[in-house]
């Protein structure tokens, strides 16, 4: 079992997504699956998801960061989080 330190950024994002939409919806999702096209998350949950990303990773996601590319897949979100954390 992975402990917190071994958790990859994608795993951490997966965990945040699970907390919003439920673990069973996220289980089958691959890292590069498009989460909107696969209907893993919908418009009703996306605002909450972005807020959880902010609080979990200590980021402030502003308008320019809110792009469909940054939030397209678990991998893309993890890349975005890493990039933002590297800057701050």
């Amino acid at each position: 079992m992975k402990d917190h330190q071994e958790q990859t950024p994608v795993d951490a994002v997966r965990q945040v997504l699970s907390s919003v939409v439920g673990a069973n919806r996220v289980q089958q999702v691959r890292d590069d699956d498009l989460i909107f096209e696969h209907r893993v998350i919908d418009s009703l949950h996306v605002v909450e998801f972005v807020e959880r990303i902010e609080t979990t990773f200590g980021l402030e996601v502003d308008g320019a960061d809110l792009t469909s590319e940054n939030f397209s897949s678990l991998q893309a979100i993890a890349r975005f989080v890493e990039a933002r954390q590297a800057v701050s």
């Binding site: 996306v46 605002v47 308008g63 469909s68 940054n70």
Partner: peptide, 21 residues
């Protein structure tokens, strides 16, 4: 257009529907 402080609309328009600044 989206007001900067209208967060739900910002997220919906940009992330879900792919509008760009």
């Amino acid at each position: 257009y989206i007001l900067r402080d209208n967060r739900p609309n910002q997220v919906l328009t940009r992330v879900v529907f792919g509008f760009e600044q």
